[in-house]
């Protein structure tokens, strides 16, 4: 009886064992040190930080009420934004599918193509749309072409990577069956691979179109067309009520885009 009581008293409740706890503390400490360094070292004029809430609410006050002037312009710019996103998504399909094909382990012709495909995907994905836009504006001048190309070049990586993964995840069995009938490689692809990746293809295209609508709204900030151009113009001329209208227009556009994508998803998939 006494022993039993003693045992109970010795039992200590601990949430984690010793090693896990040490690791946790080490990670916590490292994070704290990193944050401390970042706060100490960053090039910020601290009085501005304390003043920031004032400044932000001041800007908000200057924006209110949104100005209805130039609504026609804004509408046309929104339409241009949608065109850029849609055309770019459409064009990307033709470029991304061959890349997906050579970047998928099970369809690539050989290792050289595999690595070429992977390189294209990584390069496309690592460079942000707006940086692509910067490059194309420098080459083709300000305008929608730079915007479309920027969206295309960024989307190749996205669509290509996801399609490549979809190709890699197909069921091998129909492929085997088609090979057994004496079908050539192109026919095996058309019959055993294409039907299997179709649902993924539609889902990926719809998803990327939704993302591209958002991305197209900023292209204009570097001169590559769309609603961003007039947003930049309004900010440069301190036309804050117009800025507010444009921001509301962007929200409406994005929400409509989301509604369309969810409608398409339920219809097509």
């Amino acid at each position: 009886m006494v022993d039993h009581a003693q045992q109970l008293a010795d039992r200590v409740w601990q949430r984690y064992d010793r090693k896990a706890r040490l690791l946790r503390y080490a990670v916590l400490l490292a994070t704290l040190m990193l944050v401390f360094w970042a706060v100490r070292d960053i090039d910020i004029f601290w009085p501005w930080v304390w003043d920031a809430p004032n400044q932000i609410s001041g800007l908000g006050a200057r924006m209110w009420p949104p100005s209805p002037a130039g609504l026609n312009n804004i509408f046309n710019a929104l339409l241009e934004t949608v065109h850029i996103a849609t055309l770019a998504t459409f064009l990307t399909i033709f470029l991304a599918l061959p890349v997906a094909y050579i970047a998928a382990q099970n369809t690539t012709p050989n290792r050289a193509y595999l690595w070429l495909g992977r390189f294209i995907l990584v390069a496309s994905r690592s460079v942000n749309t707006i940086i692509w836009a910067l490059l194309f504006v420098a080459i083709f001048g300000p305008g929608v072409l730079a915007g479309i190309l920027a969206i295309v070049f960024r989307s190749i990586g996205f669509i290509g990577k996801l399609m490549g993964e979809a190709i890699e995840e197909i069921d091998r069995k129909p492929v085997e069956a088609m090979e057994a009938t004496g079908a050539s490689k192109a026919k095996v692809i058309a019959y055993a691979i294409v039907p299997q990746v179709m649902p993924a293809f539609f889902a990926i295209i719809i998803l990327r179109w939704d993302i591209n609508i958002r991305e197209s709204t900023v292209l204009g900030l570097v001169g590559a067309g769309g609603i961003g151009v007039i947003l930049q113009g309004a900010i440069d001329t301190f036309a804050w009520p117009t800025v507010a209208t444009i921001l509301i227009a962007i929200i409406v556009l994005v929400l409509i885009g989301e509604a369309i994508t969810s409608l398409l998803r339920s219809k097509v998939l």
């Binding site: 004029f45 920031a52 400044q55 800007l59 707006i130 958002r214 947003l231 800025v243």
Partner: peptide, 23 residues
Amino acid sequence: ISRSFHPVIVAILFVAAVGFGPL
């Protein structure tokens, strides 16, 4: 709202409000 705006648009507004720089 914070998801509708691309970070670059938010950034341009904050730059207008609190000035250029990491803040």
